[in-house]
Design a protein around this nucleic acid. Sequence first.
DNA 1: TAATGTGAAGCTTTTCACAGCC
DNA 2: GGCTGTGAAAAGCTTCACATTA
Lengths: 231, 231
Amino acid sequence: MAERPFAAARARSPIPDATVARLPLYHRVLLGLADQGMATVSSDALAASAGVSPAKLRKDLSFLGSYGTRGVGYDVAHLLGQIGGELGISLEWPVVVVGVGHLGHALANYGGFATRGFRLAGLVDADSALVGSVVAGVTVQPLAELADIVRAENIAIGVIATPADAAQGVAELLIDAGVQSILNFAPVVLAVPDDVEVRKVDLASELQILAFHEQRKLSSPLMAPAVGDAL
Amino acid sequence: MAERPFAAARARSPIPDATVARLPLYHRVLLGLADQGMATVSSDALAASAGVSPAKLRKDLSFLGSYGTRGVGYDVAHLLGQIGGELGISLEWPVVVVGVGHLGHALANYGGFATRGFRLAGLVDADSALVGSVVAGVTVQPLAELADIVRAENIAIGVIATPADAAQGVAELLIDAGVQSILNFAPVVLAVPDDVEVRKVDLASELQILAFHEQRKLSSPLMAPAVGDAL
DNA sequence: TAATGTGAAGCTTTTCACAGCC
DNA sequence: GGCTGTGAAAAGCTTCACATTA
């Protein structure tokens, strides 16, 4: 790897996944600094605001290019533009949310949607009692319409907020309609082709990871008594 | 590493973070297999269900102990018990959710709460119009009560589902009251002491990571034309 | 024979530390 | 003098491949 076959037109070297996962964070923090009127920022200051180490931040940014000025720091507006460009924020990505339960409602009403380059282009639910209602300014449509919506709106990203047992079927509908990126909130492992990217968010898993660490604290020899255990 | 200094009483060697993060997944998949009446399962089959490689699964489980039988596989019930034990599922962790907007509602009504070892022990909001209302069977209490609730219910895990600008203040209230584990849904970096564990879930970041990869596809030489770009 | 458990190899990510530039 | 950009070292994670055991 990293052999750079023939350096085709667009072949900037690939950005590591770990770095990509932090770009939205940097972008958000920079937005805040820009709001405060800060014109330049050092890697130390930016790293502190983002909660990462300065070395990690500099390494991450170095994969995008050399956008800093030695002895000075980074130009906030310019760096915002560069990271925004990588993230495709200049475009407006149409997104469809499938499942309009409590979570679907929350997602549809999520404020950061529009400001971060996304547009709620469709809202779909299998429950006919919900179909036709308007949520966050969008009319809920039946599941049967999903494929048409995806094609009509040129949707590239689908969000699954259904119960677990409906998620795989919805994923297949999305993929058949051409969606290649899925954000899955249902607690199931989706089976998808290799060219489809799935990211998952699982509340229960996050809580259980926290509980694991809490439990370690309880059973460690250094502390335990005071706590007294729930249940 | 793996040097085992003096093997003190409780000193099982530390489980890698990457492994811990997958234990909830394994636990959930095993629950499904147990439901189907499966008594034993091979690493290949379990790995396939969990969407990980068999080698990774075996390595992960080996950190917990040697719970498999060569030539046979793993006893589903026994393995469930072991992983559940690590995750503290036998206990019932009381959790407080701060912020009862759309997302807070969704979290409060989340079904997997009880079945995975958690109990919604408190619901708090700064908006006096919400205080007193009942959500998911729990009465919403004012922010001023937060510390008392944490202490009265012996809460170890706090969930922040407030707007971004309220999150840091809520985190400080939680920490002052003794909470050491926080799940943060607000799009801000929380500043917390070293002994407090924070996990964060950020919808916008997840979407932006997907958008990054979509954008790479668009600009790759192998494909681009057909799509035709939103906006 | 079948499938686990695990050293060792390979890869990715993070950290270090300093040369290079403003 | 100050701060970035980056090779190199260290740490962490995944995969390999096979000895081991039921």
